[in-house]
C-alpha cells in the first residue's frame, strides 16, 4: 500500500506504476467531472472529428454529479462524492482508448471492458469513499469552467483545479487486477459460513 502524490497531466508511465491497494492524492488543473451524458457527448464529438473543450489526455475523470453554487459570480463545488461507476461501463473503454485519461474516479468499481482498456491504454480506476461529498469538495479547490451546462448541473463537464484530492484507493490497475473482482470471489467463498449463521444449508 504505497502512497502517491501526483500532479496532472499524468504520464502513462506514472499510471502504470500504480497498483491495486495504493493510495493516491491528485493535484493539478486537469481534473474533470463526467457522468453518463458527458461521456456520451465526448464520444460523439470524437466521431464527428470535433474536439471537446478540454484535453482529456493525462487527465483525471471523476464520476460525480456535484452540488455547486455561485458565490460572488464564481462557481464553487459544495459537495461532490462519487456516483456509481458501473453506469459508465457502456462508454468508458472507448473513452479511454480515444482520450487517454489516466485516472478514472468513482465508486463501486467497473467491469471487464473497462479493465481491459485500462491495461491497453495505461490507466487506473480509483475508488473515492462513497458519500464523502464534503471531504471531496475540500480537494476540488477551484472551478475554472462549467462546460456543457445544457446537460444540467450533475451531468455537465466541470473543469476543476484540484489540490491533494483524495485519498483515492486504486481498485483497478493497468496490470489486469481488480479489487472488485477479488471481493466477489472472497465473499462467494464465505457464503456457506454466512448461511450457517441464519440456519440455511447450502
Amino acid at each position: 500500500m504505497t502512497e502517491y502524490h501526483l500532479t496532472t497531466p499524468i504520464s502513462e508511465e506514472d499510471a502504470r506504476k500504480l497498483k491495486v491497494g495504493d493510495i493516491v492524492y491528485v493535484s493539478g488543473e486537469h481534473v474533470y467531472t463526467a457522468r453518463d451524458e458527458a461521456h456520451q457527448r465526448a464520444l460523439e464529438l470524437f466521431e464527428k472529428g470535433e474536439r471537446p473543450p478540454v484535453d482529456f489526455e493525462g487527465s483525471v475523470v471523476y464520476h460525480v454529479g456535484p452540488v455547486a453554487w455561485q458565490k460572488n459570480g464564481k462557481w464553487q463545488i459544495v459537495s461532490a462524492g462519487p456516483t456509481t461507476s458501473i453506469r459508465m461501463e457502456l462508454f468508458e473503454d472507448e473513452f479511454l482508448r480515444k482520450y487517454k485519461a489516466r485516472i478514472i474516479i468513482g465508486k463501486g468499481g467497473m467491469g471487464s471492458k473497462t479493465l481491459a482498456a485500462l491495461k491497453e491504454v495505461g490507466a487506473v480506476y480509483c475508488s473515492f469513499t462513497g458519500g464523502c461529498g464534503a471531504l471531496a469538495a475540500k480537494g476540488l479547490k477551484e472551478v475554472r469552467a462549467y462546460e456543457w451546462q445544457d446537460l444540467g448541473m450533475p451531468e455537465a463537464l466541470w473543469v476543476i483545479t484540484a489540490e491533494n484530492f483524495g485519498p483515492l484507493l486504486v481498485t483497478m490497475d493497468s496490470h489486469g487486477n481488480s479489487l472488485h473482482d477479488e471481493m466477489d470471489k472472497k465473499v462467494a467463498a464465505r457464503k456457506a459460513e454466512v448461511y450457517a449463521k441464519i440456519g440455511v444449508q447450502v
Binding site: 459544495v78 459537495s79 462524492g81 458519500g131 461529498g133 471531504l135
Partner: peptide, 11 residues
Amino acid sequence: IAREGIPMCQD
C-alpha cells in the same frame, strides 16, 4: 468537515 455546514453527501 460537513459539521461546518456543508452537505455531507452530494446526494
